[in-house]
Computed example of a mutant assay.
Amino acid sequence: MSAPSRIPGPALAAAIVAALGVLPLVVVAFLVIALGGLEADAGRDWLETGLLLLLPLLQLFALGWFLLRRGRVPLVVAALATVAGAVLIAVISASVGQSVGAGPFVLALCPVVAAALAMTPAVGRWSAEARAARRGRRA
């Protein structure tokens, strides 16, 4: 069995950018809960609040999965979910007559860049080596 290969530059960059992208998601989710955002007339809308809490958890899971060399698809799913969360924030803000500009979409910048970096061929080879090594151990 060969020694594990070093992490390629794009994979390292994807991991760092994905980790940096978690912080703004956590801050937004915290602010929504702490400052009472997403409140309807009848009380807090827990569905949207739960979805905003799910975004940083999904990003952390995807980052862990990626670093364990299990796959890179969860980073793409987390990026798509973050873009959907940004759209949700923009729609909710527009429904109450407030403009948020590009702010919510800046939240999605790091996850989208991380997903794009993770989809490079060098990262694919790095991930495939780990899959081949796992299959070789099981046989």
Rank of each mutant, 00 (worst) to 15 (best):
F105W: 14
L109H: 00
V32W: 05
W46A: 09
A81M: 08
A133K: 02
L23M: 12
A14N: 07
A19H: 10
A128G: 10
M1N: 06
A128S: 10
M1P: 14
I7A: 15
V123W: 01
G101V: 05
A34H: 14
G101A: 04
A62I: 00
G124E: 05
A84N: 04
A90P: 03
A115T: 01
I33S: 15
G101K: 09
L47A: 12
L20C: 14
A118G: 13
L55C: 03
D41P: 11
V96C: 07
L75C: 12
G101S: 05
A29W: 02
V106Q: 07
L12S: 15
E39W: 02
V26A: 13
V73S: 11
W65H: 15
F105H: 05
G101T: 00
A78I: 07
L67N: 13
A78Y: 06
L51G: 05
L107Y: 04
L20M: 14
L57K: 02
V22F: 07
F105L: 10
V73N: 09
V123C: 15
A15C: 05
R138K: 14
P74E: 12
S127C: 13
T82W: 00
P74I: 07
A94W: 09
L67I: 08
G97T: 03
A79K: 07
V83H: 06
A116D: 10
A81I: 02
A19E: 05
M119C: 12
E39N: 15
